[in-house]
């Protein structure tokens, strides 16, 4: 089980967002973090893999070309968690997770209800099940979004800044859930901005800059002061803490010589 994304190009009008980007082969069991500055094309890449934007190039999951299989089969294989939270809606949280199951194919109601409830419980948000979406905080809604993405038990999980609205405890919960989902044999790809978090949780970091892969590999090989200066334009120190974990410390903007 692996994801191969090759030669991905996306244009919005005259602007080339991605220009023939090729990702390394992403294997099941690994958590891959896409990092890079704003407007680098990370979200667009994620949406292209999920077949949500028109693009060129191929995205092959486990030998299946995602662009060529029917949308319903794709929905079974791919879970996508968007960056934008759903707008104000009086739908209750549990209903939205059930919709993630039943919008695509007909599943008996009791089965769908129970599956949706179980996923919310697993994510620690069972208590929110009957709350209307528009009464939830940003972080709570983000957890509901994750529930929608994983309830179909997809093989490939794509997450666009899944922790942006989460408090520390929820971050840990979500990220360890991602690790567990990967360990069960899934390909997990997340866009994350916080490099310290990425260093701690990712097996592999892909640094994207100007629509290209600038560097990729294990966190310690990608998170180097030189690369961070090139890509982000910051002076950074990368050090190990007392537990041996990688820490990224940003000292300031990088002054070009």
């Amino acid at each position: 089980m692996s994801l191969i994304a090759r030669d991905i190009s996306v244009r919005f009008g005259a602007r080339r967002v991605l220009d023939g980007l090729t990702l390394p082969e992403l294997k099941a069991g690994e958590v891959t973090v896409l990092a890079g500055p704003n407007a680098a094309g990370k979200s667009t890449l994620l949406r292209a893999i999920a077949q949500l934007v028109p693009h060129q190039g191929s995205t092959v999951l486990d030998g299946k070309d995602l662009a060529r299989i029917p949308a319903l089969d794709r929905a079974r294989l791919v879970g996508f968690m968007p960056q934008t939270l759903p707008s104000g809606s009086s739908l209750i949280a549990l209903e939205t997770v059930i919709a993630a199951l039943r919008a695509g194919r007909s599943i008996p109601a009791h089965q769908a209800d129970a599956a949706a409830m179980a996923v919310m419980d697993k994510l620690g948000i069972a208590a929110l099940a009957l709350e209307p979406l528009d009464s939830l905080s940003g972080g709570q809604r983000q957890m509901v979004s994750l529930a929608q993405a994983i309830v179909r038990d997809p093989r490939l999980l794509l997450l666009d800044e899944p922790t942006s609205a989460l408090d520390l405890a929820r971050q840990v919960r979500l990220l360890s859930e991602l690790r567990r989902l990967a360990a069960e044999g899934r390909v997990v790809v997340a866009v994350l901005h916080d490099l310290a978090v990425a260093a701690q949780w990712a097996d592999r970091i892909v640094l994207i800059h100007d629509g290209h892969v600038h560097a990729e590999g294990a966190p310690e090989s990608v998170l180097t002061p030189a690369l961070l200066a090139q890509v982000y334009g910051v002076d950074a120190r990368v050090e190990r803490c007392s537990r041996g974990r990688l820490m990224v410390l940003i000292d300031g903007e990088h002054a070009p010589l």
Partner: peptide, 20 residues
């Protein structure tokens, strides 16, 4: 009905649920 319900969560969400 379920497809329309899914669309209330946004177009990307509905598409990723398998809705055309």
């Amino acid at each position: 009905a379920w497809k329309l319900t899914a669309l209330r969560l946004g177009e990307d969400q509905a598409r990723s649920f398998g809705v055309d």
